[in-house]
Every structure is written in C-alpha cells, then in structure tokens.
Design a protein around this nucleic acid. Structure first.
Lengths: 170, 170
DNA sequence: CGAAGCATGTAACGTGTTACATGATTAT
DNA sequence: ATAATCATGTAACACGTTACATGCTTCG
C-alpha cells in the first residue's frame, strides 16, 4: 500500500497474480506446483522464490492471506484483492511488453552462429529443428486445452521461422 | 581453472564470450555497448553486471586480460583463451538449449488471456500484432546485416504465429 | 508402525540492476 | 576554461536458485 505498490508488476508477479485469480484462491504451494509443472522454464517455481513473493504481494495490498487448516496442517489461502486485480489486468494487457522480445535462447545463438563454419551452422539449425519437431510430436500434458494449443502453435511457429532462416545458414 | 570451470556457461556468459571472439579482443565497456545497443532486452548490459562477469571468466581461465592505454586512460583488453573458445562453442552449439522455450512475455500473457472477455482478449492480440508491425516497418539499425535479418524474420514469424492464434481468441 | 513424500517454509548464495564515484576526453 | 560525456569501475540492493529443516499424511 506504500508508494512501492505503484511499481509495475514483474512478469513473475503478474503471472502469479493471474494464477491465483484463475484458481480463485491459492496457496503458495499450489502456485509452485503450477509453475514447476509448466514447461516454460523461465522460472523454476522454487519455494524460495514463491513464498517471499506472496509476502511481498500481500505487503503491497494485492493479495490477502487467510489462515486455514487441512486436517492439523496449517496453510495460508491467498485471494487477489480488487487492487491486485487491477494491477494484474494492467500487467496482462500491456501491449508494449507483449510486443517485446523477451529472452530467446535460439535467437541469441543464431546471432553468433557466424562464428562457426557454415556447414556446422546449418547442421545446428537442422538439429534444433529436429529437436523441436520431437517436442511437437511428443508434447507434454497440459491441464488446459488452450494452453496446449498455445504451446503447440508456438512450436510450429518456431519451425516455420527456422525454415525461413535456412537460406541464411546454408 | 578450478572445478567450477566445468560449470555450464549461462546464456549471458556464452553471449559475452562469443562477443569477445567476434571482436577479436574486447574491453568490458565495448561489450556493455554492444549489449545495451541490442534490442534484446533480456539483459541490460549494465556495467555492474559486465565488469564482474569478466573477472569471473578470467578466474575460470576462459579469458585473459591485458592492461593497455588509450592516451593516458587505462583499460583492460580481454582475449578468449582456447579453453574459453571450447566452452563458448559448447554453449553456442547446444541443441537442447536452442530448442528450449526461454521466456516469452507474449506467450505468458496468452496463457492467462482467458481471464478477460473474449472481446478484450481479441483486441489485445490485434493491438500487439499492430505494435509488432510497427517494429517491422521501423526497424532499429543493426551493425550487422545478418543480425538485422534474424531480427526481422523473428518479428514476421511472430506475426504469423499471432495470425494463427486469432481463432483461439475470436 | 515405519518409510516415503507432501506441504510449509527458511538460509545462504549468486548474480543482475540501479545508483553512485572518479578521472579522462571532447565540445562549446 | 568549463560543461558534458566517455570509460572504468564499485556498492547497495533485489530477488531467484539450491539446499536444507520440519512436521504432517499416506501407504505398505
């Protein structure tokens, strides 16, 4: 609720808030599960990151924690406040960040691929394409069908991109 | 040179080594310039990151520093050792990491876009597509033509992906 | 009942960011 | 000359990772 509450959400914070909203309410543990099961390895969903993150979000007034019990084991259920919901929407619908580059390990490598012989470079591009095809034909199981579709189309988009690039590294 | 030398290079370390190799030799400053001029915002190229990184790379035997002078201003020129070159190649030609997902701010958002009305979601997708098109028609200037091509084809690949996704968020 | 693993954390560590410091160089 | 900027760093801070701790619960 202090002035720091106005800081823009990081992508991690936004994704965590969105995950809580989708779940209705969530414990830190349920969010670690969701993130560690997701194939997006941009963040490991480690407890050491998520529990402190929940505390920070609560300190900023974006979530409220309610103590609860599962049998005799204590836990804290978090719900997103209306302030948090507003912040989450601003994060989710941020056009500038959605059009940004992020970090793409393949793009980074392609930029430096000129450092090796073209035969090695073209073999690398072909190998990566083959590996992505393996991902496509043996996809991980997703909880939501839409997530699966986004995932699959992302992979095939990547294949198309690589095909276009073949000319550059022939 | 210790056992920590065998740790896999991070993408940052790999990119920095590759940048030094491409430049022949480099100062920490010249690498901060290259990275901060690049539109890939995965890392800011801040001095506070790069100078210590050079020290670490030297400690691991991947680069050697040579003191030099520009007029009366001291600097350190770094060259990649053969050990460092081997490590850089292992990083560059890592198929598994090249086929990995990295962090894509748009993909992350799409996964949670079901949280808003489809009219808002489809408007968001259209807005992002328009913004990427602006990037395509007014591209930043790159030092190397190949980097420019990679950049441009990445953007148009992204546009194609979004077109495919329109059906999901109609 | 004992072992495996589930659920809830905490601590130490590494490293990237922002902000600052300082002297050299260039521009006005 | 003096201001702006370049080039070389350093310090404090934030935060994600790995590893550990601890008490519940479940399953044989």
């Amino acid at each position: 609720m202090t002035e720091t509450a106005n800081r823009m959400l990081t992508d991690l914070e936004g994704a965590v808030l969105a995950s809580i909203v989708r779940q209705g309410s969530a414990t830190a543990y349920s969010v670690t599960r969701e993130f560690s099961e997701s194939p997006s390895e941009f963040f490991s969903g480690s407890a050491g990151a998520v529990y402190p993150l929940f505390k920070r979000l609560e300190g900023r007034g974006f979530v409220t924690g309610n103590a609860g019990m599962t049998g005799r084991r204590a836990h804290t259920d978090y719900t997103v406040t209306s302030l948090g919901h507003t912040a989450m929407l601003a994060w989710l619908l941020d056009v500038e960040r959605g059009a940004a580059f992020g970090f793409d390990p393949l793009r980074t490598r392609l930029i430096f691929l000129e450092l090796v012989d073209t035969s090695i470079a073209s073999k690398y591009v072909a190998d990566v394409e083959a590996r992505i095809n393996e991902h496509l034909t043996a996809p991980p199981v997703f909880a939501r069908a839409e997530t699966q579709q986004i995932h699959q189309s992302w992979l095939s988009g990547r294949i198309n991109w690589l095909k276009q690039l073949r000319a550059l590294f022939r």
